[in-house]
Amino acid sequence: MLKYLVGRIAGIIPVLLVISVFVFGFVHLLPGDPARLVAGSDASPSDIALVRQDLGLDQPLWVQYGRFLSNAVQGEFGRSMKTKRKVSEEIGSRFLPTLYLTGAAMAWATLAGLLIGVASATKRGRWPDHVGMFVAVSGIAFPSFWLGLLMIDLFSVQLRWLPTSGYGTWQHFVMPSLTLGLGVAAVMARFTRSAFIDIAREDYVRTARAKGVPSRLVVWKHTLRNAMIPIITMVGLQFGFLLGGSIVVETVFSWPGLGRLLVDSVSYRDYTVIQAEILLFSLEFILINLLVDVLYALANPEIRYS
C-alpha cells in the first residue's frame, strides 16, 4: 500500500508538468494583450509599454515560462496583474467559499441521490422507480442560470424567504447549493440505482437472500456496502468537477468563489491568476482521484495494489 502510494504521488509530477506547459501555452494563446487591458481603456502607448515592462511581458516566452515554473515549485505565483495583490491571497480568499459551497451541494446531493437510487433499485420497474428516476433526471435538464434566476425571483423577491445573493449565513447557501447540487443528485441517483441492481445479482447477495436474511438487511448490509465502491468513485469525480467553482452558479448568486475569479481573470488576461488557478484545479482533481483510489482499498480489502 505504501509503495503504491509513493508511486502514485510520484506519478503526479509529470502530469502536473504537462499541465503547466498546457496552461502557459493556453494563456499566451488567448488573443488580447494584458498590458493593454491592465493599463486601461484610455492609456497612451508609452503607458502600455511601461505596464508591459512592469509585468515582465517584454521577456522572451521561455524566460517567462521558466519564471512561472520556478515560482510554482516554491508555491508562489507572483502578483495579480490586475489588482497587484499576491496571487496566493487572491486565490486564498476565494477558496473557502467555493469549498463550502461545493461541500454543501455534494452533501445534500449525495444523500438525496443515494436515497432515490436505492428506492428505485429496490422497487425496480414499479412506480417509485419511474417517479424517482424522472425526478432525478429532471434535475440535470435545467439550464442552471435560468433555474437560479427563477429561484431568486420566487424565493427572494416574491416570498422574501431567502437573501438574493452573496455569502455569509446559512440562508445564503440554500439556493446556490440547490442549483449546483441538482445535476450531481441526478447522476448519483442514476448511478446508485444501476450499481445496486448489478450487485443484487451477485452470488453472495442471492445466497444471503436464499438463506432467509431479511430483505431490508440484505439491502443495507450486503448490497449497499459493496455498491459503495463505485459510488465513492462517482462522489470523488463529481466533487472534483465542482471544486473548479461553478462559473454559472457563482455568477448568478454573486458567490465570491474561484469560478468568478476565473472568469474575471480570463477577461482581464490576468495571466498569473489564471495559471495559478488552473494548476490548483488540476492538483485538486488529481489528489481527489488518488484519495478515491485509497478509499477503494479501505472499503474493499480484496483490492490489492501491486
Binding site: 425571483d153 438574493t164 445573493s165 455568477t251 454573486s254
Partner: peptide, 18 residues
C-alpha cells in the same frame, strides 16, 4: 459596495432591500 455581476440578481437585491 457589493459586486453583483448578474443584472437580475442586482435588481432583486434592491427589491428585497438588501
Amino acid at each position: 459596495f457589493r459586486s453583483v455581476p448578474e443584472n437580475g440578481s442586482r435588481i432583486a437585491m434592491l427589491q428585497t432591500n438588501e
